[in-house]
Amino acid sequence: MIVYILNVIIMALGLYCLIAKRHIIKKIIGMVLIEYSMNLFLILIGYRINGLAPILLPEMNRVQFSQYGVDPLPQALVLTSIVIGLGTLALMAAYAMKLYEKYRTFDMSEIRRLRG
């Protein structure tokens, strides 16, 4: 239970960074923290206290294994999600570099040509 609350605290910290900081790189770090908290939430759903890792060795009993093992499906989903997060991070970093080239500043509050 406490781990879920800590997870929400990570998301809240990430959201705070994203909203309150003006530096683009800090906003990107905030965004990455939010993505981490979502992946952690997915893993926590499949977790079982004092469970076994989901690797079926030849000598294990299958019924006992499914009773005691941790759920492997969320782990597979999270792998995909981490890779998607990697792609998004690469794109964010590329945008940050190009924005610096054009605007000569990392301060997001000065990058406001579009309004109305």
Partner: peptide
């Protein structure tokens, strides 16, 4: 260009939050 990068970055952040 300037405005396209700003618009793309804003779209990127908001879209990623939605996907999350």
């Amino acid at each position: 260009e300037h405005e396209e990068l700003e618009a793309g970055f804003k779209y990127l952040i908001l879209g990623s939050i939605a996907s999350g």
